[in-house]
Amino acid sequence: MQEALNDLENSEILSREQAALLRRIYGRELFSVHWELRLLLYGGILILTTGLGLLVAKHFASIGHLTLLAAIVLGGLACFAYCLRNGGGFSPERLAAPDAAYDYVLLLGCLLLGTLQGYLELRYQLLAQNWNWWLLVSALTYLLCAHYFDNRLVLSLALSTLGAWLGVKTSLLGARPWDGGLRDNALFFGVLVVGAGVIQARLGWKRHFLPVHLHLGVNVLLAVLVAGVGPSTAGATYLAGLLLACSCSALYALRDRSFAFLLYSVLYGYLGITTFVFNRGHWSSEGIILYFLVSAASLLTALVAVHRRFRSAE
């Protein structure tokens, strides 16, 4: 590498300053802290909004309703004003963030909006038993913000909130965790998220949002199918659907060189098959231990080998 840099510098393809910078990078004198800073920003915003929510829940009577309401509203307005002033406006294409804090300021504004809705419901009981509709309002608002400001963090928040609304709505109807009704709604939600992302990408509308849709939708679909494999009488049907979904995820991973989707297909497929086998057979303790030793070792070996192939292909 050093010889190549010397040749490029002697050939005047690189200036002396450029070559010196590349030598420092190659010698690991310089390294990026980009993701560390983003993680700190993300964690700081989550801690801030969590603390604010706890403050509202426990001390809103002593601090004063108007004071808390004004603080939350002004904080949210300040965040959205910052994004409107510094953002480039709406575009169906990908927009570069004007600065490192832009995405996180928008996320903070959206979380403050959610805190405001929770405060209003806690204080004034505006929707009472229908409080779950606040989740739908939040999800639609977050979707609008994600598309207007081109923010994948807020898109993840919007899709998660939409899924939470659907789950809470079903639970209020008396559904128990992972029973038939809740599984059906979760399957519908997973298909909806994946389908919306694919259609949006095909239409050329925010193509870079597709991975967010796929990661969330595929995980929901596979988790629901694994849950259906268990004690359900339709366990074989769920297992067949799980294997089909895992195959599609693996094919997508191989086509787009995305190891995450291959990992999803392998892990969820393993969980589904293991659940199906143990729920429909009588196993001794020795057989269970042997099964996990052999299967887990084989699975880990295969994943390491495939990951090395993915790395070498890059």
Rank of each mutant, 00 (worst) to 15 (best):
A139I: 08
L251F: 15
L68G: 05
G190E: 03
R280D: 06
L216N: 03
L267V: 11
C79H: 08
Q117D: 09
P92T: 03
L135D: 02
S249K: 02
A234L: 15
Y104N: 05
L299R: 04
K206D: 06
P211E: 15
G53I: 06
L242R: 05
E93F: 15
G204V: 13
G230D: 08
I63V: 12
L244P: 07
V194W: 10
L107N: 03
S265G: 13
L120K: 07
E12R: 10
G118D: 00
L54N: 12
L113I: 01
L40Q: 06
C110A: 15
I13G: 00
S171L: 08
L52I: 15
W35G: 03
R308N: 05
D99G: 11
K169C: 02
T237G: 05
T67S: 09
L8Y: 10
L113Y: 11
A227P: 03
A96N: 08
L271M: 12
G75K: 07
L203H: 05
L39C: 06
L254T: 14
Y270F: 14
R207N: 11
L303Y: 10
T301P: 00
Y291T: 04
V266Q: 09
E9N: 04
S298I: 02
G190A: 07
G89Q: 05
L84Y: 10
L290H: 07
L172R: 09
F261C: 00
V168G: 03
D7G: 09
T161M: 03
G88C: 08
R255K: 12
F310W: 07
D184W: 09
F90S: 10
V191T: 12
S247K: 00
G88H: 14
R152A: 10
N279A: 01
Q18G: 04
F261I: 02
D99F: 01
A101G: 01
R255M: 04
A201K: 14
T170G: 00
V154L: 08
L52S: 07
A296I: 07
G174I: 14
V137W: 10
S138H: 12
L116E: 09
L122K: 13
R280S: 05
V193T: 13
